[in-house]
Design a protein around this nucleic acid. Structure first.
Length: 554
RNA sequence: UGGGGUGUAGCCAAGCGGUAAGGCAACGGGUUUUGAUCCCGUGAUGCGCAGGUUCAAAUCCUGCCACCCCAGCCA
């Protein structure tokens, strides 16, 4: 894919797996899992985890489960399951043989919980949530044991059965693991492992009114599926002792190992499902798939390719260090893919009219334009040239700085694939606004004819005024101004600009929805669809690198 | 101020006792009918800080500092 993958250095997780394999652990098998909760859409952070988990499985000839962690029906929806599958499909990973749901194991979980009770390792607590909260202690003070902590096994069994059968209201009882209320690790202070929730589950309907908590369900799911390496993010480090406690107390089919790595953060964006959900619900964006969102569906709509996201993930390291990746790294991956694979077209986003005074004919003449400068196999096309054309407004300056290689009064510039033109006159309205530029063209300078030795510094793009297609173009900037956004106040008010006066060369007619192009000298764009008023609608995926913009700044 | 983690260039990251890979960014230069692409070149006497062990330390030891995570019947 790139030079990076050739000499890919191994991350610490691969080292651990190598060592495990060397020692013959887990029958020399490797099994991982990607366990999203279906309560939102996947984002770029999930992509890293998907690439890691599915990548490791592939590399070690193992298996990777896609497991929906659906233990909290209050927050989950079938729609999210569908969306998540779609995103993983798009990213290019397969899970047909390995698709599971935590809810598949509800009965197993229940039986294991009964075992915990039978062994004196769990009890039903009848304190309410405030009481439980108030007796948990603090970061520096131990908690207080519940008065219900020493109920008999018999009583606990009866109570837990009655919890299952629906005899209690939400919150009346919980099942707690009996560990240590004085543990310095708060997760070990008799954590709740079951709560009562009279909520219909998207898959199990009303079969259950008690649902297992994450730590319990996750450990058991891993053990049941034979996960060898359970990879999660750093915030679960404190949960590992509890994970291992369950593994120690119960006789389970396998002994998975939890390994934590740091989350992926990207500057100027958010990789928190909860915060992204807020942007969706308060209308800051148009939806989970808004092209400005760091969700996989958003990036897909924006025009990013799955391949470039995989490449990006391969360039970002897997470590335990807190990180904040610069957007430039992602953009580099996107540009690299798009440059190789996108056919070129010409489009003018903000048109400025050019009249070629010495072009006598009212007819159009056709010039050849290659579809890719380095890939002849992509072919070429004809572009209409004639007396009236449009160029980019920013390609003309009446009073330019030095080193401005574009059109200026009295100056010459090449129209790409066509002729060299000279600016003769600037036509303005009474208010002084530039209306059009009158030029002359040099007939000897037609591209490809070799009739003239004339060289000019600048080459600009253009579109015929006679043959073109009107377009509406969405230009995006980052959703947040601040490199590490905290609140709504950091939102970039200019994250979306709509240009409804754009025009594209006529050959764009052939485009199908989802096709990507490079509009020369401008950027990469994806064709969405035609708007109701007949405009071809494009999203700008990303600009070209622009060293002129840098020169201007200095 | 309890517990768990992490500190190598602007951002990532390799390194695992033998004298600091690589990528992105930045900055020079070359090619170019895209100010794109591509190609070439430039960065740590230094690995959070201070000591120590050793012929030899980013790697081992001690102390300190900074930052992140944890007190949901969320995951």
């Amino acid at each position: 894919m790139n030079t990076n993958s050739k000499n890919k250095s191994k991350n610490f997780i691969r080292h651990i797996i190598d060592a495990d394999l060397k020692q013959g652990k887990n029958d020399s098998k490797v099994c991982t899992r990607f366990p999203p909760e279906p309560n939102g859409f996947l984002h770029i952070g999930h992509a890293q985890s998907i690439c890691l988990n599915f990548g490791i499985a592939k590399e070690f000839n193992g298996k990777c489960y896609l497991r929906f962690d659906d233990t909290n029906p209050a927050k989950e929806k079938e729609d999210f399951v569908t969306a998540i599958k779609e995103d993983i499909d798009w990213l290019g990973f397969e899970y047909e043989e390995s698709l599971t749901y935590a809810s598949d194991y509800f009965e197993d979980f229940y039986q294991y919980a009964m075992q915990l009770i039978a062994d004196g390792n769990a009890y039903v607590d009848s304190q309410n949530s405030d009481e439980i909260k108030n007796t948990r202690g603090t970061l520096s003070e131990p908690g207080i044991e519940s008065a219900y902590r020493n109920r008999s096994i018999n009583e606990n069994e009866g109570l837990f059965e009655r919890m299952r059968s629906g005899e209690f209201e939400n919150g009346e009882n919980v099942l707690r693991a009996k560990i240590d209320m004085a543990s310095p690790n708060i997760n070990l202070r008799d954590p709740i492992i079951y709560r009562i929730l009279h909520v219909e589950h998207q898959r199990t309907g009303n079969d259950w009114c008690i649902y297992p908590m994450y730590d319990f369900a996750h450990t058991l799911s891993d053990a049941i599926e034979g996960i060898t390496h359970s990879l999660c993010t750093l915030e679960f480090e404190d949960h590992r002792p509890l994970y291992e406690w369950f593994l120690d107390q119960l006789e389970l089919p396998s002994q998975p190992r939890q390994i934590e790595f740091s989350r992926l953060n990207i500057e100027h964006t958010l990789t928190s499902k909860r915060k992204l959900a807020t942007l969706v619900s308060n209308g800051t964006v148009t939806g989970w798939d808004d092209p400005r969102m760091p969700t996989l569906s958003g990036m897909r709509k924006r025009g990013y390719t799955a391949s470039s996201i995989r490449d990006f993930c391969s360039r970002v390291g897997i470590t335990k260090k807190d990180k904040s990746i610069q957007m430039a790294l992602l953009e580099n991956s996107v540009r690299e893919d798009l440059d190789i694979n996108s056919p070129r077209r010409m489009a003018v986003i903000e048109p400025l009219k050019i009249i070629i005074k010495n072009y006598d004919s009212d007819e159009v003449e056709y010039v050849d334009a290659v579809n890719h400068p380095k890939n002849p196999e992509m072919g070429k096309r004809k572009m209409a040239f004639g007396k009236e054309l449009y160029i980019e407004t920013t390609d003309f300056m009446e009073d330019p700085p030095s080193k401005f290689f574009r059109l200026k009064p009295g100056g010459e510039v090449r129209l790409r694939f066509a002729y060299i033109i000279k600016c003769e006159e600037v036509i303005k309205d009474e208010a002084g606004n530039i209306l059009e530029i009158h030029c002359t063209y040099d007939t000897d300078t037609k591209s490809g004819t070799g009739q003239s030795e004339k060289k000019v510094k600048g080459t600009i793009h253009w579109v015929s005024a006679k043959e073109n297609r009107p377009a509406s173009v969405n230009l995006f900037e980052t959703l947040f101004n601040h490199s590490e956004p905290k609140s709504e106040a950091d939102i970039n008010p200019n994250s979306l600009t709509v240009c409804r006066n754009a025009i594209v060369e006529k050959s764009i007619d052939e485009a199908n929805s989802g096709d990507r192009f490079q509009f020369e000298r401008s950027g990469y764009f994806i064709f969405e669809q035609k708007t109701n008023d007949g405009l071809m609608q494009f999203n700008r995926i990303i600009t070209l690198r622009d060293s002129w913009a840098k020169i201007k700044k200095n």
